[in-house]
Structures are given as C-alpha cells and as structure tokens.
Design a protein around this nucleic acid. Sequence first.
DNA 1: GGTAGTTTTCGAACGCGTTCCGAAATTAGC
DNA 2: GCTAATTTCGGAACGCGTTCGAAAACTACC
Lengths: 224, 224
Amino acid sequence: MEAMPRPVTNSRPGRPAVTSREQILTAARLLVERDGVQKLSLRRLAAELDVGVTTLYHHVRDKEDLLIQLLGHYAEQIERPELPSTPRDRILAAATTMHDSLAAMPWAVEVLTADDLLGESALWMVEGIVGGAVDAGCSPEQAVVLYRGIWYYTVGELLVRAHSARRREDERPVYRDNVFSGLDASRLPHLAAIGDRWAELTAKDTYVEGLRAFVDGSLADRSR
Amino acid sequence: MEAMPRPVTNSRPGRPAVTSREQILTAARLLVERDGVQKLSLRRLAAELDVGVTTLYHHVRDKEDLLIQLLGHYAEQIERPELPSTPRDRILAAATTMHDSLAAMPWAVEVLTADDLLGESALWMVEGIVGGAVDAGCSPEQAVVLYRGIWYYTVGELLVRAHSARRREDERPVYRDNVFSGLDASRLPHLAAIGDRWAELTAKDTYVEGLRAFVDGSLADRSR
DNA sequence: GGTAGTTTTCGAACGCGTTCCGAAATTAGC
DNA sequence: GCTAATTTCGGAACGCGTTCGAAAACTACC
C-alpha cells in the first residue's frame, strides 16, 4: 500500500490519484477473505489503503458497485467445465455450475439481485443455457424466457437459503417451525398432514430437482 | 398518540409501557403509506409516536422483525379468490395470487427472503399449492419440493425485477444493455445472435409462463 | 411507608453508507 | 513564473440501525 513514485509527466491534468480501482478491489478482496464480508466496510477499506473514506467514492459509485465488481473478479476464477453435448444436459450443467459457484461465495448473496449475472467473464454459462435451449428447438424468445426463469429460481434459492442459514447462526427461531405444529386441519388439511415434517423437508437441498422440472417443463412446450 | 389514563391496577409489575406493538405497527403502516418504505426508519417511527428510539426495541426485535410483522398485517388483507378445482390450475392460481399480492406491495421485497411466507393468515395459498400437488398425485415430499421451487422462483422474480426497477429510477444504466452489443460471436454465438434484443426480451413479464413450465415439469415426473 | 423485584424508557455512543464542499496537487497556456 | 483549468483528496456532517446501561415507574410484600 506504499505510494510509489509516479512519472514526472502524467498526461492528464489534475491532482494525481493516490489509489486506483484495481488497488481498491484487491484490498477489498483481502478484507473479505480475512475477516468475512460482514466486516467489509468502506471505512475499514479506506483505513487498509491509508486513504480518506470519501476518496473511495471517486473510484466506485457506492458499496453495491464495489461488491458487484468484486463478484466480477471472482467470476473470472470460475473454472469452466466441459459442457455436455445434449442440449438439455448442457442447460442443466451450466445452471448447476452457476448455482454452485455462487453458493460457494457466501458473501455474494448481498448483490445477487443487482445484476443479471456476474460479469462478462461468466457469460459462457448464459450462452450454455440459451444455446442449449435453442439447440433443443426453442425460439430465441423462449430461450431467453427459459434463462430468466432459471436465473430467478437460482437467485431465489440462494437468497432464501442464505437468509435462513444466517438466522440459524443467530439462534433466532425459524418462524415456520412453530406455526406448523398446530394447524387447523379442516382449513389446511394437507399442511396439517405434513405437520412437523415441514422443517425436515425444507432442510433438504432440492435445487437440481426443481431445476430439472423447470427445464423439462419449459422444453416440453417449445415451438416445433 | 396521546397517553390515555391507565387503570389504577395494571396486573403486572414494572414500569407501564408507553406504547405497544400494535401502535408501532399502525404508525409504521401510516409512515409507509404516506412517505414510502424508503423513508421508514426507526427514528422517524419513534418521533411519530413521540417515544425514544430505543424504546421501540422492547417491542420489536429489529427492523427486519418490524417489516415482517408489517408484511403479516398486509397479508391478512389479501382477498381470497375461489381456487379452481383442477389440481394444476389450483396450483397456478394460488401461486399467481401470491406473486401478484407481493408485487403489489413494492416495499415488501426488503424482507421477502426473511420468511417462507407472509404469516399464518396467508397459509391458504401454501395449502392451495401443496394440496393441488398432492391431489395431482404427488407424494407429500414432492409436493413440498414443488412448493419450495415455486417460492424460490417467485422470490427471485420479485427481487430481481424490483432491483432493476429501482435502478431505472435512479437513472443508472443497466449493465447488461452495454455488454450485449459487442459480443464475440465465435465464443458466444447464440447470445451474439440475440444481441440488442436482450434488453427488450428481458423487459417482458414472463412470470406465469415460467410458472406453468415449472409446475408442468414437476407434475410430469410425479409418482404414479 | 419502605424496600425489593420487575419491566419499560431513553440518552449516549458506535460504526455504518453517503453527501457536500473547500483544499490540495497537478497540467496547459501565456 | 504566473494563472487558470482540472482532477482528486479528505474532513465534517447527516441519518441510519443497533447496543449498553442507568434511571424511572410500577407492583408486591413486609
């Protein structure tokens, strides 16, 4: 974090910058990996870089922007698996990679809704899904609808599960667990029949199961 | 917000409460409807009730708790439509009601991931989905998986769309619009083929379309 | 009436994201 | 060299959610 000697002529007028977007992102990554994303604040980041807090705002628009760019950094490191040649399986594989990669970055959930995805370097996964859909006989419109559905489903799953995981850490009771015990069996017969098993059933990871259902259902009513 | 004269004997020991959960929620609702959810802060709320800020923390655990309870209040007002008798259509109708009700409360997105749903008064929608699935031949396990998939998909759709809507308000450019113009057609052929139409295609509301695909795909591989 | 126990209130303080605006440090033109 | 333009820096301040702890207001019991 040492200020290195700059070239005497710096092409542009104005006060020379003491830091850069690149340095900020590197430091942010360091902080996230060292202390967790919860501890990442602009003030800490500025302190780490030995820079005024507001200085950061000349390089990133706001904290969300920072996190999005950080996500982009990580997205470049996602290793790209060999996608299957069958269209349907290609869709499933790309979506699963997308999901698992994001699930492996627990801090990412805070910005998941921000952008359709993780940046240019991760578009190959979108391509895998859209291309698979087209190869399976979908029109471009249907392919985009399919991709968006997968994205919604994936984001929802990640956010809801991350939230309930955080709750469990804080030892706050999960709301539903209490409600499902004493249900009015005449008004809500099926829920009452499930009863206590609800907690157990919602604990299971069923991402791929739902994904398969969604993809198969989408491909079933494609044109031609 | 006047302190009304209390009965001389108050059953419980301790300093008498100057406000109640009920009053807090009512005031919060007022603030939300008057100034929007963005302006709802515990400080404003305390000022509205003429009460110290920290006093609120004896009636609600934190702001998220407040919003969840607020959501529960609103959920009671969701009018309950006649659900179709066909299992599949019943699922679709219940899910659509769930989605549309939440979409009509734009402030609700801030807590959507918090709970599986909107409180006890809205369980009839869950019952509609789970019951429909069971009536269609699903096992209880499959029914719960189906419900959770719908919930993930719905939450994801609401959050992503709410986020991009907020972006549009702030006049921040949507990231993807810029990226999709110049794509490497050799690496990402299908995305390049779609090109500029991406923005237009993602603008459309395709919730029900995806929902139908998901439900049909789930029901297709049910037991028996 | 006094004292103990209980519950609620609320001011003070912390760290946070963000905005404002004047100061500082550089280049370009004279 | 001087001045103007330009760009970045960073201190001060705002409102926010949240925590802490001491004081207040009540009941119950002696």
